[in-house]
Amino acid sequence: MNPFVLSILLLSLGLGTTLTFASSHWLLAWMGLEISTLAIIPLMAQHHHPRAVEATTKYFITQAAAAALILFASTTNAWITGQWDINFNLHAFPASLLTMALALKMGLAPVHFWLPEVLQGLDLTTGLILSTWQKLAPFILMCQIMPVNSSLITFLGIASTLVGGWGGLNQTQLRKILAYSSIAHLGWMVLVMQFNQQLALLALVIYIPMTFSTFMIFKTNSSTTMNTLAASWAKTPALTAITPLVLLSLGGLPPLSGFMPKWMILQELTKQDIPLTASVAALSALFSLYFYLRISYAMTLTISPNNLNATTPWRLQTTSSTLPLAISTTISAMLLPLAPATLALLSP
């Protein structure tokens, strides 16, 4: 792709999300969402092979329908209450419509079906943008409309954690597994959003470096299925040793930083006296843990047999920059002791 076009597209991605962040008017928020959807479309289809074009088409139709639904809900709200402000208390019916539309935009559970298929058709860099940056704008909008309809939100969160665990169980395609992991993490964020928005933000802030390092690890190994990961010990031994830490951090095991949001969220849910929801969410994390463990097993805990020539690629110098990956793996493995500081940073 032409670098000028690429820079315009990336600038527009930033512009769209920033516009949604900065807006207090629903029309402007809708414009931001539309700009970021339009800007990522050529990035998704940049290799022009049939799977990429198909994924782009599916993504476009879903996002366009969700954006139109957002505008329709806010128009209905304006028709009922006469207000266009995002922070103004919404009428109940448009608020439910908005919640469902934002869930469709982010890929939460009852309306998540587009996300694994779309992610499967993309290359890993665009998939990374799709599963981190593109979620920010609908996430912030959802935070802002939160005080209404709590039961719908709880349903979305629980269904997302369950589906995100369940769907990834039988997958061997890494991008689909990452899509389901994204669904499950968003479910956790949405679950706590109505009680404590700092915790939802904390979960998002921890989720982004973990996902970044996972995508970058797979990109460094240039592998998109689980069985190509088995040869990664010969390509990047140090990274192969660190990968289980990152994956189990995504799964939320204690000494790693992915444990921090799950711990805080479970504590908050118990504090709000809804132990059933908390237990279902905690148990559904086990599903996710299963497939993270399976990736770790295939990648690190076994050394697959290899011929003599193929055991030496790690001696070759890599050309890509590894500094971002180093920083993000460190963050996603060792942030737990900094939990009080992180919380203090995020609270207003």
């Binding site: 289809a45 022009h48 092979h49 074009v53 198909e54 782009t56 088409t57 476009f60």
Partner: peptide, 8 residues
């Protein structure tokens, strides 16, 4: 996208 899909 319709044109691109019709091509691929």
């Amino acid at each position: 996208l319709l044109v691109a899909t019709a091509r691929t």
